[in-house]
Design a protein around this nucleic acid. Structure first.
Length: 463
DNA sequence: AAGCCTTTGAAGAGG
DNA sequence: CCTCTTCAAAGGCTT
């Protein structure tokens, strides 16, 4: 079943997703920032109209509320729209191109990043976010001065691309891109940059870049010996100005991929010949981070009911569980995107709750151009391939409830017209309503909307 | 403390 | 084949 060879018929997980973008990709190679911003504005306006209509028509239609913005649907719902229709939309005024169109297909991650090198929003993205999150507005003058600062820091036109320079402080002082590299930089010594870094220079951007990364998972915790030998798929994007491109600890890596387990050859689903290399090491000697030790916590919570059980029995059970590592699913494209962008969103907004952050990320995901999404689909595809190679016998069902001792309550079944708690408020993302200062709204609701700098929260919560 | 929330995508299960 | 469900990450919130 596993197609270890990427070959021609490669399963680019979401080919359909890419196909849906077919007609809008090569439309305009060069579009001025102004026109882009105008388009963003039009996009947001269109979104506003649609949302207001949605609210009017069916505030109880949870499914409708769950739908992405209309433009996103234009991209995604290819089953309902023919390509000709899509083309028609392009010609017509209704079609709204991607917020960040015209990017060459060179898999530049984060090219669409609305963030300037100093962490502020680019004008284009500002237009977008300004509408989505009015409270995030920044004075235009401030913007200009920031822009000037940015230009000053970026003497060459390459600064356009160097938008990727991650200045936004990661909450954990980790490079914003390091979420993709699930390692810790705690003990990393930036004194020895990876030797490959200056090896290749992108003729287009002038940014030094290593060759396209091999099928190495960005989630591999690299041992000291391997640091610098394995380029991160996104590593070449990261500026080399003294910053560690590979903030990798000498030992393990940070959560959520704790130290790899010793794989027991007696694992039921892993015949000896299929058992991953020692200590779950990849052929590169890298333990795969997808392996997670089952927590004793869960174990104890399950067995505490039967206090009559002997501690010996519990211990043996624990041992048994320990021997069976939890191999996590490879991350899909969106998960990879979330990992990369979460820190930026968190830094930009005052939101902290992941549910809200994820909503923003979901919208941004839809706003990505097909090239940008393709980058993540490609990464995800490589992740899956590598995962398959490392764990040939692994199946997603191994992680299903009951297979891992993890007990998850089944999701609440929603009634057809049922909406989530405060979903009306939640899903009306500060688009058309002015910020309000009503602190009487439910705590949960407020939390999800977050507070702006004036401690205002927005959202038409009716409760 | 465990589970929920929220997103998208992949994959399994079942009809 | 289609639909539904679960799980990946994340972290504040709820029970």
């Amino acid at each position: 079943m596993p197609q270890l060879n990427g070959g021609g018929g490669d399963d680019l997980g979401a080919n359909d997703e890419l196909i849906s973008f077919k007609d809008e990709g090569e439309q305009e190679e060069k579009i001025s920032e102004n026109s882009s911003a105008e388009r963003d504005l039009a996009d947001v306006k269109s979104s506003l109209v649609n949302e207001s209509e949605t609210n009017q028509n069916s505030s109880s239609d949870s499914e409708a509320e769950r739908r992405p913005p209309p433009r996103s649907e234009t991209f995604r719902d290819k089953s309902r729209e023919s390509l000709e229709e899509a083309a028609k939309r392009q010609d017509g005024g209704l079609f709204k191109g991607p917020p960040y169109p015209g990017y060459p297909f060179i898999m530049i991650p984060d090219l669409s990043s609305p963030y300037l090198p100093n962490g502020s929003l680019s004008p284009t993205a500002r237009t977008y976010l300004q509408m989505k999150w009015p409270l995030l507005d920044v004075q235009a003058g401030s913007l200009q001065s920031r822009q000037a600062l940015k230009d000053a820091r970026s003497p060459s036109p390459a600064h356009i691309v160097s938008n990727k320079v991650p200045v936004v402080q990661h909450p954990h002082h980790v490079h914003p891109l390091t979420p993709l590299i699930t390692y810790s930089n705690e003990h990393f010594t930036p004194g020895n940059p990876p030797p490959h870094l200056p090896a290749d220079v992108d003729p287009k951007t002038g940014i030094p870049r290593p060759p396209h990364p091999p099928d190495i998972s960005p989630y591999y915790p690299l041992s000291p010996g391997t640091v610098g030998q394995i380029p991160h798929p996104l590593g070449w994007l990261v500026p080399q100005q003294g910053q560690p491109v590979y903030p990798i600890t000498t030992g393990g890596f940070r959560h959520p991929y704790p130290t790899a387990l010793t794989v027991n050859a007696s694992m039921s689903r892993f015949p000896p010949h299929m058992v991953p290399p020692h200590h779950s090491l990849h052929t590169t000697g890298i333990p795969h981070p997808a392996i997670v030790t089952p927590t004793v916590k869960q174990e104890s919570s399950q067995s505490d009911v039967g206090s009559l059980h002997s501690s010996k029995h519990q211990d043996s059970k624990k041992e048994e569980e320990k021997k069976k590592p939890h191999i996590k699913k490879p991350l899909n494209a969106f998960m990879l995107y979330m990992k990369e962008m979460r820190a930026k969103v968190v830094a930009e907004c005052t939101l902290k709750e992941s549910a809200a952050i994820n909503q923003i990320l979901g919208r941004r995901w839809h706003a990505l151009s097909r090239e940008e999404q393709a980058k993540y689909y490609e990464l995800a595809r490589k992740e899956r391939q590598l995962h398959m190679q490392l764990y040939p016998g692994w199946s997603a069902r191994d992680n299903y409830v009951g297979s891992y001792g993890k007990k998850k309550k089944r999701k609440r079944d929603k009634q057809p017209g049922e909406t989530n708690e405060h979903s009306e408020c939640f899903l009306n993302p500060c688009l058309s309503l002015p910020p309000i200062t009503d602190l009487s709204a439910p705590k949960k609701c407020r939390a999800r909307f977050g507070l702006d700098q004036q401690n205002n929260w927005c959202g038409p919560c009716s409760l």
